[in-house]
Write a protein that binds this DNA or RNA. Structure first.
Lengths: 145, 145
DNA sequence: TATTACTTAATAATCTTTATAAATAGTGTA
DNA sequence: TACACTATTTATAAAGATTATTAAGTAATA
């Protein structure tokens, strides 16, 4: 399952002429296995045990590499630090207003929006993003107490 | 036209018990008249002439006040600094990948997306946002040279 | 092996935003 | 008007995220 994605990603890296160092492998692996769209700092802290000497810059460097190749996407919300999403299949995000939890949400791509945007603005449209905001089930319960 | 919106905004401020200082007025006015969703720093620099002694903190303070009352919206994209939009009518944004230009884009609200998100995730949905990315007409021309 | 390019680590620097504290100015009231 | 009270501004420091720099290390290649 996720092993397959990992192999595919490694192949993409290799074909792009990017070396697969232990740190790089670890960052990618963590991204692949984490379902919660971590920040750079979260990745850094999570790998501290395995790589006590690793620099924060290394995390940022590698995230940049993955971004450039298209292996991950950067998500910027209001909360000061970027989050990284290695799920490159088309999907949207639902975000909790109170706890910040991010949940993936699949929905048929809104092609007609892109087309209309092209017509109206003259832009050469490449993609779009959408986030739905609300209160997650946990926070709904907490509020009712 | 935009005078009317300004009067309305001032009335909203007054009724919220917020004092209308010269700096505050200037920030609001700049936001109202600018069509390009400025950053806090852009506002600061734009008003430097009129208010040589104004602090950056004042800009941030006032933006916060406007946000709390609902006069403006904060837009967070990848480019490190927040942008502020005083157009509170429902609309989406089209953003240029190369120059960062932001253009307003009207489209019927995607209510069915919100509804489906509620069903699938159990969230109590409040709102959503969407951005379309692409290359603006100016940058398309520049590239072809 | 020698050379080259890539990568890491450590650190400094930058940039955006927030916090703090003192000074200032507006508002209401006696 | 004078006083007290509170909101606001200013100046500055601080925090936090990200990028830049540079030296050292590591892999690839001829």
């Amino acid at each position: 399952m996720s092993e397959e994605r990992m192999q595919k990603a490694l192949a993409t890296l290799k074909s792009s002429g990017v070396r697969i160092t232990p740190q790089r492998h670890a960052v990618l692996e963590y991204l692949m296995h984490s379902m919660n769209h971590p920040t750079a700092d979260e990745i850094y802290k999570a790998l501290e045990g395995k790589f006590p000497n690793m620099s924060v810059a290394t995390v940022y460097n590698n995230l940049r590499v993955f971004l450039d190749i298209g292996l991950v996407r950067e998500l910027t919300y209001g909360d000061s630090s970027s989050r990284f999403d290695c799920n490159t299949t088309e999907h949207y995000h639902v975000i909790c207003n109170s706890c910040g939890k991010i949940v993936d949400f699949h929905y048929p791509a809104l092609d007609e929006v892109e087309q209309l945007a092209e017509q109206v603005t003259g832009f050469n449209v490449s993609h779009h993003r959408m986030e739905v905001y609300g209160t997650c089930t946990d926070c709904q319960e907490n509020k009712s107490h």
